[in-house]
Nucleic acid binder design. Sequence first.
DNA 1: TAGCATTCTTAAGCAACTGAACGAAGTCCG
DNA 2: CGGACTTCGTTCAGTTGCTTAAGAATGCTA
Lengths: 409, 409
Amino acid sequence: MREGVGATAPAGRPGRGRRPGARESILDAIRASEPLSRVELAKITGLTEAAVSMTVRRLLEEGLVVETGRTPTGGKPRTLLQLDPNARLSVGVHLDEDATTYVLTGQTGGVISRLARPAPLGDDPDAILRALAADIDTLLAGSGVDPARCLGVGIVWPGPHSGGLPADETLPHLRGLRGDELGSRLSEATGWPVLVENDATAAAVGEYWVARVGPDQAFAALYMGGGIGAGIVVEGRAMRGSHASAGEFGHLCLEVFGPECWCGSRGCLEVLAGPRMVVTAARDDRVAAAEAGLDLTQPLRSVTSDFGAVARAARAGAPHCRALLESSARYVAAAAESVVNLLDIDLVVLTGPGFAAASAIYGPAITRRLAAADARTWHRNVTVTVSLAAATASATGAAALVLQSHLRA
Amino acid sequence: MREGVGATAPAGRPGRGRRPGARESILDAIRASEPLSRVELAKITGLTEAAVSMTVRRLLEEGLVVETGRTPTGGKPRTLLQLDPNARLSVGVHLDEDATTYVLTGQTGGVISRLARPAPLGDDPDAILRALAADIDTLLAGSGVDPARCLGVGIVWPGPHSGGLPADETLPHLRGLRGDELGSRLSEATGWPVLVENDATAAAVGEYWVARVGPDQAFAALYMGGGIGAGIVVEGRAMRGSHASAGEFGHLCLEVFGPECWCGSRGCLEVLAGPRMVVTAARDDRVAAAEAGLDLTQPLRSVTSDFGAVARAARAGAPHCRALLESSARYVAAAAESVVNLLDIDLVVLTGPGFAAASAIYGPAITRRLAAADARTWHRNVTVTVSLAAATASATGAAALVLQSHLRA
DNA sequence: TAGCATTCTTAAGCAACTGAACGAAGTCCG
DNA sequence: CGGACTTCGTTCAGTTGCTTAAGAATGCTA
């Protein structure tokens, strides 16, 4: 159960050759900093120019890479290489409490087409799996692409220990299914290799891929959806921990004797300042609830969408909503600082629907919190950014997982 | 500046061959679970039996590995292989505010001989470096070993951002020296490759080595000396972060609006419950100070030794000292839980002089804190142990760094 | 058009690893 | 006591992936 979560059905050439290899290094280098010439690749990867040349030829023949233009030099101009975005495809699925989102991405992580369904997809696991497989087929068929180019499917779901909610509060119809079971059954149903991941790690990998993060950067993606999690990528590898449940950012302790959390501990970020708490606080505060237009006659349905409403209100200037978010942000910022200090991270990316809605408050709060100690002590210059497609980060991230897995083979 | 801190002087064959390689995998497998036979090695490493056979022959010829006995099977008995402890040597140095400790270890991390000097070794960097070089020579000469077998020197020092103390409060005579400068100059002075590391990471690597931690375990070594730090080893690799300052466990935030820390932030573990704070609190409490026999007429000299006095008093039953440590332990436990949750760690080792003295209090506190959420939610079964040689972990860890670097080449 | 700088390719060689057959060293059983 | 059986380890030929070294391509400049 190491090496990523989930199941890979027909994938993975077994013994055959497959050493760490030039091929992977070259593809990764191009991904991170295309366009590149062969000599530049040789410098970056440490390979010989000869080796690069041969490997690149094979990549060109396979169509994974294309030559695009040339730059003048003192002598023979360099021919620049880029990934062919359409040479490889991959499908990402985000199974959420509110909706199910599908994206089809190319090799560079760019979205080719997408599809959304209101949740739930069915009443029992079998029905859901059938619906998933059918939707994936629809997506591929409707995009007019060659399915043979599809590498596989990545799926993100609020499975056991994901995103900071107790497992049995989300997706009741899939209750009791383990991640690897979901993977293998979906793989059976679709015929593609399937990778299963949690939202935060997937979003991190997606960001790593799409935002061209270099393998030398240690970076963390903070993901806010129905809960808060972190995806951590160091040296180009996602940290998943011993039982594939790393990144429980929401269960960093910020108050040793704080209120009890559903996880069983005390003072977790989740229970002090998680989105669920923000929404609950907004519902308890008549003014805030009115500002955000929350319907108090109904029981709380979707943390994500209610949080979005609070964030919209705050952006529009509503003082109570803004205060709630500012307060939450101070806790999140302190937790982010802890992660940065613990892992010496130099890039923090905010992503997920929560931060998509409220990054204007959380981003500066984190930057501010980091600034003091950074100036006095660490001199690290941490970058805090917002993902370009924060709202759909999980789905594109799920797709990127599949791409990523083809560089580590 | 990636790939470990510090300087390696004559080391590292550049391009030549040196792929990740069978040799390293095999040595690491034997390290982690010796004794092993060739077939077992093939299974563990995934290499062919043929490849194992050839590689092992070379290792036998070089004397790195020896055959030790055989186990009966259904057919031909297996011949067991072990590392020859004396085939390779390495020197570890721990430069501390109180003393300088040297150890000479064999290939398995066992200490062959040791040497201690009261600090300081001199009044300026040059004198200190000369003294270090001379002591290392003395250690090697006095141990009657072949210096040619020595792989190099590892050195741990409270350099910039180490152990949780402001850089300019420790080792005033080396003030202003950067880690890599210390490394290259010591390498020049001794003629050996030198690796520089912080106390916690070194201790973690040492523990990884000596305690035969497998590369599949994610583990963290919490180190308490003059401050608190953490060394984190995942997939057999120490996490050093982007600027080699990962592991700042002492600057996890446990109180968002807590007291200001010297680092510039607020509510850090260090300032709430670090050893310096324990000692300060003990000096402020007449009863506790008396229990521990602290000399209040003198200004605070060594955090480490005063903390040791408090811990001894607590072990002897002194209630005030015990209360101080219990209180500190609750904070440390919460921080440990944060790390475990964030990185999905399944082995926590307490080490360093601080925990050596007070593990009886901190160990159970951590176990207790982890238990609640583990039972309710994570079901991880984290092991919390105390290093066997916690008091000298840094020095042996420094030596292990050098050994370790020969498996990653 | 010759010279030059640089990029990329080709050809020969080496080292590591795989696959498959073979030798070695025991147990078990008639 | 000898032969079948089992499991461990080795040998040998073949493949792969890279390196080194030399050479071809391509454009600029004089």
